[in-house]
Design a protein around this nucleic acid. Structure first.
Length: 375
DNA sequence: TGTAGCATGAAAACTCAT
DNA sequence: ATGAGTTTTCATGCTACA
């Protein structure tokens, strides 16, 4: 990590620098792009970015890091500083599917010749779920859903909405419309009957996020929502990972940190990239059960499961590197709990209890790099 | 001991006007 | 540039209950 003191072109020289921070901190401004389309997207005639990474950062291994885009001020500047000053790629999944998911990705993958997963997913609510047209009021102008989260709206709230509409004219007064639309947007509610709204089903979330049907089936419904709220949007991640296919025709060895329900692995699988071995670190019992179930049904490679990033010591990393001949991809999104805007209580930034595990991602990635450098 | 229901704002970006 | 209003957000902690 000392080597990073060499002055580099921070953020690839494309930082659209805005106002300097006035609070005396050294935080670099890290404005989110608008539209949030990353370096390039399929079907978008955007100014396609070219970037040249310093040789020591190009790998092997390739790495891929993910977290929420709308983190507290300074967080992304810090993450970027630790991950070799590489500019984050901010992408909102609404440009690839019917639901928003604003995320930042830092990786050292090539960004040319990417290809999207096929079939291309529907981009609007009605294309994804045509049957919702029946009860959708004309004054609800949403065409896409907001971010799928770990909690859903309560039955009490949907009842309140129903009562407000039932005791209103048709169409309802502007004030009622405003109240209803506000709650519908907050809770990602859809119209399932006359004056009746409801949250999405877990199965619908699986579909929007690019997972196979019933991927999370077998858990309690609360656990399903939690796991789905925390995962990757598969089409978005697969678009970035697609460049690996021609580079590794015989398959890849993957170190998967914070695996969750296996969004990264599902993306690789749907791309047709064989996984020779996956070392998966995931602490949640429910997530592990889902991922192991999917792996056993779809994969032939070796799966090694580890409970906690803290127990993945540098010694064990050395031994895995020697056993598998190195890792081709280190992938993971570290916990967002203390970064996410929804958190009322402990949104205390990158040093928060869970989000500080980012530093283990950094430690483990560096241990892999140095072990592979000695191969 | 585990699961589900429920209540609990604020930070930061965005829009749009001046 | 500045500012007011609007929109969005990978959630946590408590309680009831099996």
């Amino acid at each position: 990590m000392e080597e990073s003191k060499k002055k580099r072109n921070r953020y690839g020289g494309r930082a659209q620098g805005n106002q300097p921070s006035l609070d005396g901190s050294h935080d670099e401004p890290m404005p989110l792009p608008n539209p949030m389309v990353g370096f390039n997207l399929p079907g978008y005639l955007q100014p396609s970015v070219t970037r040249i990474l310093p040789k020591q950062d190009t790998g092997p291994p390739f790495f891929y890091y993910e977290n929420v885009a709308q983190a507290p001020k300074g967080v992304w500047a810090t993450i970027s500083r630790f991950l070799y000053d590489i500019q984050p790629e901010f992408v909102d999944s609404k440009h690839l599917c019917a639901t928003a998911r604003k995320r930042g990705y830092i990786h050292n993958l090539p960004i040319e010749n990417r290809s999207p997963l096929l079939p291309v997913p529907p981009k609007t609510i009605f294309e994804a779920f045509p049957h919702y047209k029946k009860w959708w009021p004309s004054w609800d102008l949403r065409t896409q859903l907001n971010c799928l989260r770990t909690n859903i709206a309560s039955a009490k709230l949907t009842e309140r909405i129903g009562r407000a509409l039932a005791s209103s004219d048709s169409p309802p007064a502007r004030s009622v419309q405003k109240y209803v639309m506000n709650e519908c947007r907050k809770g990602n509610l859809v119209w399932i009957g006359k004056n009746k709204v409801a949250p999405l089903e877990p199965e619908e979330m699986e579909y929007l996020l690019g997972f196979p049907k019933d991927h999370t089936r077998g858990l309690g419904i609360t656990e399903r929502y939690k796991s789905l709220g925390n995962t990757f949007q598969v089409d978005t991640v697969a678009y970035h990972l697609s460049v690996l296919k021609v580079m590794f025709p015989n398959g890849v060895n993957v170190l998967s940190l914070f695996t969750g329900i296996g969004g990264g692995e599902v993306a690789l699988h749907r791309l047709g990239i064989h996984m020779k071995a996956v070392v998966s670190v995931e602490i949640g019992k429910a997530n592990k059960r889902i991922f192991r179930g999917w792996w056993d049904q779809t994969q032939t490679g070796t799966l090694i499961e580890i409970d906690d990033v803290k127990s993945l010591t540098d010694d064990r990393i050395v031994s895995f590197v020697s056993r598998f001949g190195g890792f081709d991809l280190v992938i993971g999104g570290s916990p967002c709990n203390n970064l996410a805007g929804c958190n009322r209580y402990n949104r205390d930034g990158l040093e928060g209890e869970q989000s500080a595990l980012f530093y283990h991602y950094f430690r483990i990635l560096n241990a892999v790099k140095s072990a592979m450098a000695r191969m």
